[in-house]
Design a protein around this nucleic acid. Structure first.
Lengths: 191, 191
DNA sequence: CCAGTTATTGATCAATTGATAAATAAGCAG
DNA sequence: CTGCTTATTTATCAATTGATCAATAACTGG
């Protein structure tokens, strides 16, 4: 994972083997091809690092909404704001058509939709079952996600050190998000 | 540019030649090496597409600040939200250490600093000459930039169609930006 | 049309690279 | 220790790829 995050998927099997202190043909004892090896890297990083507990955090209504969102985004940021995650995700996007869209579809279903549902509930709006999430609502959540992700891009792709603390940026973004999203919510349901 | 944006800088000279309907050795009549060719692509896209008029738009105080920012970000977005610009910038970041940081340093000097200066002026705060821009101010501008850039990432790297109109997103972001940045500005100068 | 210059191509080299197979080393049950 | 299985290496293949060079085609001024 670390190797391909650094060199991209065009990194050579010989260099990878050297880094692992093994010989290059040994790789082919454990993986039928380079492509299969890369597929396994995807699996480990993007599927393996997803924490189901996040979904519980978002929907646990015994905790105030803002606190839930802050906790979720902090934990999520801790996982994706790593050298490996950010760069592999970008390499995958530039090369492969499909993996990223697939991952983000999952992210949308397991996180975005739930976040919107909880906001609807908080403000007494109809459930997303009754009234599907609007493009504008989704766009707001995307904006929050983009802000976090872009921190990783700056750090691990542009090699620019971050001057500001990540957690405080997340807190600020969540706050402005909650403040702003109210204005794009659907009208209150009539009794 | 289009070729390398699609295949990355590991795209082969033979394929490039085929796309240009020439033979591969002919490339070496016009470029000493593949690397020099790529260097030229950087030049054309990242330097060549920068419009000095943008700096005038930002600083033209005969126009209301919000209108200036919207115009600048709309024009800037029109240039960078292209298949070529977004993907080449990302490829460059993943491969080369330096180009992106260099470009963003320019962006910061020519645009970000000016934006902050104008906001300071608008709200009657000390000039950035007297009091350097703070990390928090810069972070706010980054957030705006990130939101725009991420639209390009979604479209051209993740292959996800954008449901929402870019210009209206920019308008909304500039509005919330101007609303939010007031709270992180330095205190008013004492007479 | 000619001579000289420029543009373009075909053939090919040397290095790289994913993959294979035979040979060797290491581990292990009895 | 023996026989068998598993792990690892050495040597090598075939395809790819950036680059070179001599040969050929196209163009240009006179």
């Amino acid at each position: 994972m670390s190797f391909f995050a650094e060199h991209g998927f065009e990194g050579q099997t010989r260099e990878l083997a050297k880094r692992l202190r093994i010989t290059q043909p040994l790789l082919y004892r454990y993986f039928p091809s380079k492509e299969a090896l890369i597929e396994r890297v995807y699996q480990e990083v993007f599927i393996g690092r997803w924490k189901p507990s996040w979904e519980k955090i978002i929907t646990d209504r015994s905790v105030p909404l803002k606190a839930r969102l802050i906790q979720f985004y902090r934990e999520y940021a801790e996982v994706i704001l790593t050298y490996e995650w950010i760069r592999l995700f970008m390499f995958a996007g530039l090369k492969d058509l499909g993996l990223n869209a697939r991952y983000l579809k999952m992210l949308r279903e397991r996180a975005f939709e739930k976040v919107i549902e909880e906001i609807r509930f908080e403000y007494g709006r109809p459930s997303t079952d009754e009234l599907p999430t609007t493009d504008l609502e989704v766009e707001m959540v995307w904006g929050l996600h983009a802000a976090i992700f872009y921190l990783g891009v700056r750090k691990f792709i542009y090699s620019m050190p971050l001057e500001t603390d990540v957690n405080s940026i997340i807190d600020a973004k969540v706050t402005t998000f909650l403040g702003g999203v109210r204005f794009v919510l659907p009208a209150k349901a009539m009794a």
